[in-house]
Design a protein around this nucleic acid. Sequence first.
DNA 1: GGAAAATATGTTAGCGCTGAGATAATGTTT
DNA 2: AAACATTATCTCAGCGCTAACATATTTTCC
Lengths: 342, 342
Amino acid sequence: MLVFKSGKGFMYGVPTLTDVARLAGVSENTVSRVIRNKGPIADSTRTRVTSAIEELGYVPNRAAGSLASSGSMLMGVLLPSLSNIVFPEVLRGIHSALASTEYQALVGVTDYDALTEQGIVSSLLAWKPAAIIMTGFDHTDATRRMLENSRVRVAELMDIDAEPIDIAIGLSHRKAGYDSGRHLISRGYRRFGYVGHDWTADRRARKRYEGLCAALLEAGLTLKAEQRVDGPSSTIAGRDTLARLLTKKPDIEVVVFSNDDMAVGGFFHCLSAGIAVKEKLGLFGFNGLDIGQSLPAPLSTVRSNRFLIGQTAVEKLLESSERPLERQIVDTGYVIIEGATA
Amino acid sequence: MLVFKSGKGFMYGVPTLTDVARLAGVSENTVSRVIRNKGPIADSTRTRVTSAIEELGYVPNRAAGSLASSGSMLMGVLLPSLSNIVFPEVLRGIHSALASTEYQALVGVTDYDALTEQGIVSSLLAWKPAAIIMTGFDHTDATRRMLENSRVRVAELMDIDAEPIDIAIGLSHRKAGYDSGRHLISRGYRRFGYVGHDWTADRRARKRYEGLCAALLEAGLTLKAEQRVDGPSSTIAGRDTLARLLTKKPDIEVVVFSNDDMAVGGFFHCLSAGIAVKEKLGLFGFNGLDIGQSLPAPLSTVRSNRFLIGQTAVEKLLESSERPLERQIVDTGYVIIEGATA
DNA sequence: GGAAAATATGTTAGCGCTGAGATAATGTTT
DNA sequence: AAACATTATCTCAGCGCTAACATATTTTCC
């Protein structure tokens, strides 16, 4: 291992700024400025410093930097879950936008629990992150207060149906549900069923449901049957739940599912039960997942742009480190995918 | 906003340890010890301190803590991609194990690129993480050197077919491929096809392929046909690629896919093309994803325990902060799922 | 009852970096 | 050649916390 002089004598171990400065024959501050590309530096100096860094294999200590500058290149990310493919996709968008920057993601998973979220927010803030990305609008008062006091920029993703703390990025789930209903009604469907999952956790699913009901009501219709499972959405759950729904009400024309996972499960049920999809029973999902589109009959659904949401969040947050005067809402929109199942 | 006395006079803003100490009427160190639960503290003192913390809404500054103790409660996580569902599942395992601790995950995505990985490792190390979790064994020399010098604990996940830096957790993909082959041979299959994806990125898929070929060779057989797509695995890719394979060689009895995504796509192709799965054409995947098991005919495949891998990694790493003398290998195993497609 | 042990708290010196302002070296203008 | 910019560099005081050690204070035990 290398031996070199440091602050108070000979040291073994990790080299510091001081060591680099000594080797390059410049002051610590100059090294610091070379590293951070800040202020004017003579080319010759820069070269000497960079080669000293190279030679020592110096890696800056971010904790020290963060402490001195009371800021960090960290971006806090809070996701409700990683089980639902939607959130890894958001995270993918976040990472893709982060890739071209120096920022790094500090990720926490809340399990759809506002108190867990609160704890994570608190420990995130302890790192003085540049910004925090969270999901939805369900936060505890304490969480809101912490975020308020910290003055850190905050993006709330997925949903835009409420007033954000700072900036919201996503789509109107209520409207998406409503439009789904309108779309299906315009296709001639009248006898609607609904298959969903637990919506105490997934509030957005509920908003879509409400939008759907509003569209039906407006057309003088109602849901003829609905069935919800306890627990998260899954293909299996969709399959079983559609089966149960059809046992109770066999004369449904179209089923709207809480999301694509459920709908794909529904598709599989039809396959097993020999139900002609679309002719006999229409299926409609939400999200526009790949899996749905690769089905023998591409799923009729709504494309939510998860990747884009994550990506946009990062871009918007990095535009300015100060919260803008006006709360901002970015609608990433959605597209109804015709598909072949409804 | 609160006004209180700090180090050098009145300050507005975020309270520090000093403020808490002053309010509670104890020394800073005592507050620090209350927070970190270290050393003996009288109950009365603890109460005074915690209520001072409460009152001020004090949040410790981790950067300062990390600097002072030259360590952090961060765990670096490097994943090659988030597109392949497998890695979010590993991440889920990691988070689930982390949830009961104070540690937090600092996540980076390498895009299967060793140089990108190197850059991320370098910036991770800058935070003095407690440990680093990475995937596979393909690292640059510089990466190895940095990890070596830093002395942090390192887990290499997914694969156990090589010598780890510190600890490897996963399964033998070569053996899994081999066993798949043996299994299918024992089921009477003789005319094998293979449908895969780009394996310059996904080395493990290649190892499984090699294991499969070894099993065939041992039985005096060979692959009758194989088809690989450029690019990552996906349902669509599996579907199209199987179609192409069958055009070239229609008399295959069973197709082994590089993974479940591809195999599910293959299943969909059979559905569209009216090919009786299993009777006419066996399908075999790898991973044991939910989607494969929820197919009308559960996919025959191999269950890799991704969640467990992530979870085990964290547990093992936290067992000791020092690298053990012996490099360690943890085999999380795999299970052949009979399924109904082969 | 006094020494030793156990418990509870305080004091002090940094950890490695950055920000602000001082200083030095160079170039430009009159 | 003096006066002024401009550019490049240095000095130094912290950022907020923790480790190590020193100092009470109480308990235990013979």
